[in-house]
Every structure is written in structure tokens, then in C-alpha cells.
Write a protein that binds this DNA or RNA. Sequence first.
DNA 1: AAAATATGTTACTATCGGGTAACTTTATAA
DNA 2: TTATAAAGTTACCCGATAGTAACATATTTT
Lengths: 198, 198
Amino acid sequence: MQKSLSREQKRQQKLDVILRNASKAFMERGYYKTSLDDIASMQNVTKPTLYYYIKNKEDILVKCEEVTCGRINAMLDDVMDDDVSGYEMLYHFIMRYIPIITDDVARCHVRHRGQMEDPELAKNSIQNHKDIENRVREIIRIGIKDGSIRDCNSTILAILLFDSLNGLTSWYKSDGPVKENELIEEVLKLVTQGVSGS
Amino acid sequence: MQKSLSREQKRQQKLDVILRNASKAFMERGYYKTSLDDIASMQNVTKPTLYYYIKNKEDILVKCEEVTCGRINAMLDDVMDDDVSGYEMLYHFIMRYIPIITDDVARCHVRHRGQMEDPELAKNSIQNHKDIENRVREIIRIGIKDGSIRDCNSTILAILLFDSLNGLTSWYKSDGPVKENELIEEVLKLVTQGVSGS
DNA sequence: AAAATATGTTACTATCGGGTAACTTTATAA
DNA sequence: TTATAAAGTTACCCGATAGTAACATATTTT
């Protein structure tokens, strides 16, 4: 029982490695220019071995999405449980969203979300994102209600916010010139105060 | 002479149609899932005919980029020539950027920028975008200097702004529920005032 | 130790799609 | 009206790669 658990863990670990390596490759070379042979050789295995962990190539994208959306929703559960103003909830959300999204697997998800060839999977993927977007809209609505956020179109605001935040994935590197703290501060200031001079 | 000009014009028109149709298909099905046969059949021609107008598949992306960046830079020439504050320049830029970017060819460019297989072309594409980004950073710096924009990291602000604006391309449809005027207003308010409640 | 199961490999198929060569038709120019 | 170039077609090649079948090895359970 103990051993079989460890086997299951090993399996999970190997899947994680596949997802991370594939994500990295997809971000560098793109999904279609990265072959399964490429991915397999990063793990020092051969292509058919991958099929022991994934159903097919597209399944990698699906699994990256599951992992990422799981993390985001767990974070939202936590943030929305707070007994604070909508503005503060939004503030916390942004603070905690940035570290989540600047991870290779999350980057991969953001870039490929909704682009699966199987229409059913694509639909699902889009819905997953809409669900998260709706939860943030709910935060905004709460903020408008309690007066901590100015009256605005919550739909448009949520989308613009996500575009900025998700856009980070294509340029922000945690080992780059911009420090994570500085980045979070700038984003929060922009969102809360805008650009107008005093 | 008159006739030969008209021939040249016809050629240009046909190229435009190719770019527009290809852009639409790339946005719907994705670049790799759209074959040149697909694109050709939209013009009721055969694949080899396309090679009379484009060098290869990637060249479509390059040409979409040329058209779009040309428009943006022309607009910036106009906006930056103004004898107004940095804030006003930024305001005008945003107002005029939105209609430009919500066009099929521009959408295609935004989605595929920097992703050419030929490294030289990819480098070029990234540089084109950086050039535009730098011009907007210059606007922001002017605004900070004249006090019309609050002191901030102009690099980060420019990137966040472009992410929001370019993100529009993936959801905004001019025939959708959100009117262009309303959209522009919301974006401008968010950028200038942020979300904080009074 | 033996049976069963998990994990991995080699070798292959089948398809798709970018690109080209050779040829035909249409339009411009002399 | 004939020569020349533009515009388009049919037919083909060929490289890449997702996915599979059949076989080999390691590991766990009985």
C-alpha cells in the first residue's frame, strides 16, 4: 500500500515534469513547432512513453489548464472568503495572481487557452476562463456596491485587467530586470489610481 | 501607362484580399491549422497562385505586420506632432489605437507577432513592436515631465497598456454588445483614474 | 519464485501540407 | 496580329510528425 502510493507519486511527478518541459518548449518554439519527440527527449524517454502519461498532444494543454485553473480557483476561494471590501479583495487577488501566472505551466495555459482542435475541449477551456472571469467580476460588483470601487462596467474592467495580467506571461521573467515586488506595485497603482498626474 | 497602373492596382487589391481572408482564417482556426489550400479556395484560386503574391506562408504574417505597423506609426506621427500635454497625447493615442487594432489584419498581426519561424523575421517583428512601444514610452515620459501623468515606471506602464489594448483583439467585435464609444470611454477612464471609488 | 502489471523501446504507418516544375490561358504592348 | 509577360492550373514531391502495434524489461504483489 505504501509502495503503491509511492509509485503513484512517482507517476504524478513524471507527469509534472512532462508538463513543465512541454510548457517551456511550447512557449519558446510554439505548440506546432514542438514535436512529441522533442518533448520526450527532454525527459530522456521516447515518444511512445509519453502516451503512458497523456492521451495525446492536446491533452498536455488540457492538463496544464487543469493545474493552473485549480490554483487560481483555490486562491479565489481564499481571497473571496475574506470579510473585507471589494477593493481590498481585488487588491489581494492581483497580488496573488501575479506569482501564479508567471509560472511556465500557467504561461503555457494562458497562451493556448481555448485553442484546442477538439471543439468540445476548446469549449470547456473557454468556459473555465469565463468562470474565473465571472468570479472577479463578482468582486468588482461587490466593490462598486460598498463604494470602494468607482462605478464602472465590471465586465470590461475584468477583461482589461485579465489582459494586462495575462500579458505579463509573455514578457515578465522572474530573473529579469524588473523585480516582482516592483511589478506588483506598479500594476496595483495603475489599477487603483490610473496614470493622471496629481 | 494607364492600363499598367490599373494592373498594379488590381494586384494590390488581390493581395489585400488574400491578407484579409488569411487573417480571418488564422484567427478562427489558427495559423498551423489553416492550409494554403484553404486560403486559396477563399479567393477561388489554387494554391500556386498565392505564390504569385506572397513568398511563402510566413510572408503573409510579415505583410500583415507591415500594413498594421505602418498604420500605427502614421497615427503616432500625427498624435506626437500635437502641441499638447503628454497626458493628452496618450489620450489621443488610445482613442485612435482602438479602431486600428480591431481590424482583422491587425488582429492577425497582434496574435502572431514575433512568432515567425525564420529567426531574422522574428527578430524584425519584435523590433517593430519595440519601436512602437518606445514611442509610447516617450509620450509617457513627456507627460511625467510636464506633470500631466503621475510619476511611474514608463516601461511597465507602456507594456501594461499595450497588453490591455492588444487584448481587445481577442474579444472585441465591432458588431458585438459593447459599443466602440463605450469601450473607448471605459478604457480611458480606467487608464486615467483607475478603479478606486470616490 | 511466479504471475501480473507498470513502464519503456524499436520500428512502423499514414496523413497532411508546404513548396515546386511544367504547362495553359489571358491580357498587354509593339 | 504577333510577341511578351502576367496570371493561373494540374500534377507531383517530400519532409515532418502524430499516433500505434508488437515486443522487452522492470517492479510489485501473491
